[in-house]
C-alpha cells in the first residue's frame, strides 16, 4: 500500500485545490496520462535495468537518436512506417546491447558505461540530422527544399482512441509497462534479473546466466527508449536531435518514487507506473493552480525526497 500514499496525497491535494473544477474534468486526466507517457515508456525499461542492479543514463539520448532516425527514414527517405518502426527499435536495441556488453564482460560500472553511451548517442543523433530538426520540410540532394506530407504513422501515434478519450501514446506506455511486467514477474529471465541485481556473485554461483541477463536488461531499456523516441517524433512531427534532454533523470525519478530500490534486486514496474502517475499529477495540480514553473521544480524536488523518505522500509533486522 505504501507506494500509493504519495499518489493519493497528490490526488487529494488536486481535489481540494481543484482549480475551479478543472481537476474534475476528464480532459485534465487525459492530458496527465499523455504527458507522462513518453517518460513512462523510458521508466519501464529503466525499471528492468535498475532491478538488475544498474542504471541507464543513455535513455534520453537514445530517445533523441531514435526520433531522428525515425524522421530520417520516414520523412527524408520516404520509408513506410511499418518498415521504419522495427528498424528504429533495432537502433535502440543495438545501443542497449553495446552498453550491456560493456557492463557484463569487462564488468564496467553501469553509470560510466551509460554516461558514455549518453554522450555518444547524442553525438550520433546530431551527426545523422546534421544538427537540424528533420521535419516535413526537407532538403533534396540537389539542394532544393520541398514539403512532404506527414506520414500516417505520425498521425496515428499522436491521435486518440476510444472516442477521443485516450491518447495513443498512453496505450503505448501501458503496453510497454505490461510487457515489462510480464518479463519481470512471469518469465525466467525476470527471476534472473532480480537475482543478478540482488546478489551478483550468489546468482553466478547458482548457475544464473549473469552475462546474458545483464545484456538483456540494457537491450530492453534501449528498445523502450527507441519506442519513446518514435512517440516523441510523432508528437513533435519532426526528429529533433536536441529532444529528450534530461529525460533519463525523470525516468529514474519515476522508478525511485515507485519504491524500486536503486541497489537492485527489489521493486517492480507496477510501482513505476504509480511513480509516473504521482509525478505527472503533481506537475498538473501545481500548473492548474497557477504555481510558477520555478516553484513547481522546487516543490517537485522536495516532494521527491519526502516520498522516498516515507517509503523507505524499516525492519530489515532479523531475530
Amino acid at each position: 500500500m505504501r507506494p500509493f500514499v504519495p499518489l493519493v496525497a497528490v490526488l487529494v491535494f488536486g481535489c481540494v485545490l481543484n482549480a475551479n473544477g478543472a481537476f474534475f474534468e476528464w480532459q485534465t486526466h487525459r492530458a496527465v496520462l499523455r504527458e507522462i507517457s513518453v517518460g513512462g515508456i523510458l521508466a519501464s525499461g529503466m525499471t528492468v535495468v535498475i532491478v538488475s542492479g544498474g542504471i541507464d543514463l543513455a535513455v534520453g539520448s537514445v530517445l533523441a537518436l531514435s526520433a531522428v532516425s525515425f524522421a530520417w527514414l520516414t520523412l527524408l527517405h520516404g520509408l513506410p512506417g511499418f518498415f521504419a518502426l522495427p528498424l528504429v527499435l533495432l537502433v535502440g536495441a543495438a545501443a542497449g546491447a553495446l552498453s550491456g556488453v560493456l557492463v557484463a564482460w569487462p564488468r564496467m560500472q553501469p553509470f560510466i558505461v551509460t554516461l558514455a553511451m549518453m554522450v555518444f548517442a547524442r553525438g550520433l543523433a546530431k551527426e545523422l540530422s546534421g544538427g537540424q530538426k528533420i521535419s516535413t520540410y526537407v532538403q533534396d540532394p540537389s539542394g532544393a527544399f520541398r514539403s512532404v506530407p506527414l506520414p500516417a504513422v505520425f498521425e496515428a501515434l499522436d491521435g486518440r482512441v476510444l472516442g477521443g478519450n485516450v491518447s495513443v501514446v498512453t496505450l503505448v506506455f501501458l503496453g510497454s509497462a505490461f510487457v515489462t511486467w510480464v518479463i519481470l514477474e512471469r518469465l525466467r529471465v525476470g527471476r534472473y534479473l532480480f537475482a543478478v541485481g540482488g546478489n551478483f556473485e550468489a546468482a553466478r554461483l547458482s548457475g544464473v546466466p549473469v552475462h546474458f541477463t545483464l545484456i538483456f536488461a540494457y537491450v530492453l531499456s534501449g528498445i523502450c527508449a527507441a519506442l519513446a523516441g518514435i512517440c516523441q517524433a510523432a508528437q513533435e512531427t519532426h526528429g529533433d536531435p536536441e529532444t529528450g534532454l534530461g529525460y533519463e533523470l525523470d525516468a529514474i525519478a519515476m522508478v525511485v518514487l515507485g519504491g524500486t530500490s536503486l541497489m537492485g534486486g527489489r521493486g517492480g514496474v507496477a510501482l513505476t507506473v504509480i511513480g509516473a502517475l504521482t509525478l505527472g499529477y503533481l506537475e498538473k495540480v501545481l500548473s492548474l493552480n497557477a504555481y510558477s514553473s520555478e516553484l513547481r521544480l522546487m516543490l517537485t524536488g522536495v516532494i521527491l525526497v519526502l516520498a522516498v523518505l516515507f517509503q523507505r522500509r524499516f525492519g530489515r533486522e532479523s531475530a
Binding site: 527471476r191 532480480f194 537475482a195 540482488g198 546478489n199 550468489a202 546468482a203 547458482s206 534486486g265
Partner: peptide, 14 residues
C-alpha cells in the same frame, strides 16, 4: 543466499 529474493525464488534459482 540472495537476501532480497523470496525463499521460493532462492530455492528454484538453479
Amino acid at each position: 543466499v540472495l537476501g532480497e529474493l523470496s525463499v521460493l525464488a532462492n530455492a528454484t534459482l538453479s
